[in-house]
Simulated scan of single mutants.
Amino acid sequence: MTTINAHQLSRLIDKTINHMGSEYTEPLHGIRLDVDAKYLYAVASDRYTIAVARYQLRYDDRQQEPWARTIPAAYLRAIREWLQQMAGAGLVTISAVEERLVFTGPQSELSIAVSTGLEFPDWRGILRAQVEQAVDSSDMFPALNAGFLSRFNNGSLVRIRMLGDEKPVLIFAEDFIGAQMPTSRAGLYPTAKEDFPGAHRSWLWTLAAGCKDASLDGAAYEEDRPLYEVTTDIRETGEGLLRSVLRSTADLSETDYDTQKDLWNAQIHIGVANWMAFRYLDALHNVDPHVAQGIVNEVAGELEAGELGEYAWDTAEKAGFDPQKWHDDYEAHLKKRAEPAAAKADSAA
Rank of each mutant, 00 (worst) to 15 (best):
V287R: 11
F278D: 00
E307L: 13
G271V: 01
A283T: 14
A292D: 02
G294E: 05
D258P: 00
E254Q: 13
R279I: 06
Q260M: 06
K318T: 09
W264T: 04
V245A: 03
A312Q: 07
L242R: 11
F321K: 14
N286D: 14
Y311A: 07
L281A: 07
D256A: 07
A316N: 04
G240Y: 05
L284I: 11
W313V: 04
A273V: 05
Y311W: 12
D262T: 15
L284F: 02
A292R: 06
K318Y: 03
W275F: 14
K261M: 10
G309N: 09
G294I: 03
P323I: 03
V272P: 02
V245M: 01
I295W: 07
K261D: 07
L263E: 15
T315V: 07
Q260G: 04
V291D: 05
D256L: 02
M276D: 10
H269F: 08
D262I: 14
R279P: 00
A273T: 09
Q260P: 01
L242D: 07
L308R: 05
G306H: 03
A273M: 03
R279E: 15
E310L: 14
L242N: 05
A305R: 14
L308F: 12
D314F: 11
I268R: 06
A319C: 12
V291E: 09
A266I: 03
W275R: 11
L281S: 05
Q293T: 06
Q324G: 06
E317S: 08
G309K: 12
F278I: 00
V296R: 04
V272I: 14
G240Q: 06
D251N: 15
E298R: 15
D288P: 01
Q293P: 04
G301T: 01
Y280E: 10
E317V: 14
Q260T: 01
A266D: 11
H269Y: 07
W264L: 05
Q324H: 06
L303D: 06
R247H: 09
